[in-house]
Design a protein around this nucleic acid. Structure first.
Lengths: 220, 220
DNA sequence: CTAAAATTCAAACGAACGTATGAATTATTG
DNA sequence: CAATAATTCATACGTTCGTTTGAATTTTAG
């Protein structure tokens, strides 16, 4: 049962690291915190992953592997159904961001914990993180951007690329859900809203994103 | 000239810390890096500010003091001109986010460096940062949110608050400008766009934000 | 069952961290 | 000019960090 035990250790480390990185950041989380909370030996991280940075990369890799595959699958399916016709922008946005948001409800894919980690990490200054994330994301982003170019042939490509960027920002931030500005919690609104914050977020966000994507072009 | 020299030291530390925090994050920047680059003694940070955390707070405080004042001034002016009539949503958005973006061109207010720092810090997990930023932002956000409630009486307040949140995210992310996904740099577009990225960003962003704010309400 | 491979473990490493101290230096004040 | 206060400085403290090591243990394979 060595392999089983080993897999247990690996996964326990990954789950714990994911949780602590989300709560305290990469620099703010020590190997001793991780191994302590995961109830494994301190040296096991270096044994299984090689280094703390490599652990961080693996935390992302196992989740993004699925996300990338799923996003490409959804896009492939939409494009094959559409034949030669361009896709509707709403389809594309839904395919890209809806896939992401669906992870929130799936605990086996990291749930909200991973989504928060991803949202925060996209603005992390550390080089190794930026490089890694860029590599992981690049192909899928290219594909979706191309789909948007095709779907909106009259909109300048630079404009589309920027709006894609803005959409990513709005989504990351909504997901990271910092409450930093107490925007959400302190508005003195009916109680029901406190409950369905997360279930209704996808629809709210999607409306906002599509509104932004379709906004009149700026005049320079 | 003791006081002059002292002010020099203080400001040199603040400027250097602002730059290094932006480049490497709070945890990723050591006191020795800061004092070394600023060419001041290691102990001077603790002498002038008390601690590393207090230095971080002061880095923000000196910039946000101006930003808060300016945002309130703009809002007050718009409201007094409008009298009893509600403001136009575009005015409010422009007042809030335009003020922020104007800092990018003003090196004496921190320029793009501070804006990037702010954008990144809004999703920072560290408690003392979240608490501090929430306190600094709260009053102004309340005022602008109230203005939006009044400007859009038919839109549910929860929806407005959420969209404010989304707008903040899009803006933060656009400003943080991580290029994490190489979205902006690698789109193979005419050369001119590489140059005017920053001058045109305000107009591009404002169009997007207003499009999102005015989007049709989601159906649940 | 036994040898080899994989994994766990306790312990230690040097380096870097934020902070504190007290003397030395510089500036202010009367 | 003398005293007093403010600031700078070199140095050190104790802690925590990521990583390494080699022995102990467990699992796998012949």
């Amino acid at each position: 049962m060595a392999e089983t035990r080993s897999v247990d250790t690996r996964e326990r480390i990954l789950d714990t690291a994911e949780r602590l990185f989300t709560a305290n950041g990469f620099d703010g989380t020590s190997m001793r915190q991780i191994t302590g909370a995961a109830e494994v030996n301190l040296a096991s991280v270096n044994y299984h992953f090689g280094s703390k940075e490599a652990l961080m990369r693996e935390v992302f890799r196992r989740r993004l592997a699925w996300l990338n595959t799923e996003r490409l699958r959804v896009l492939d399916e939409m494009e094959s159904k559409a034949g030669d016709k361009p896709l509707k922008p709403s389809q594309i946005v839904e395919g890209f961001f809806g896939t992401l948001l669906s992870m929130a409800q799936d605990e086996s894919r990291g749930g909200v914990t991973f989504l928060r980690l991803l949202g925060r990490t996209l603005t992390d200054p550390a080089d190794f993180i930026r490089t890694f994330l860029a590599d992981e994301y690049q192909e899928v982003v290219e594909r979706y951007k191309s789909a948007l170019f095709k779907a909106l042939p009259d909109v300048p490509r630079a404009e589309i690329a920027w709006r894609f960027h803005f959409m990513l920002g709005a989504t990351s931030y909504a997901i990271a859900g910092t409450d930093a500005l107490r925007l959400v919690t302190d508005w003195g609104v009916e109680d029901e809203d406190a409950i369905d914050r997360l279930d209704r977020l996808p629809q709210r966000l999607m409306s906002f994103l599509l509104g932004g994507l379709r906004a009149p072009l700026p005049k320079f």
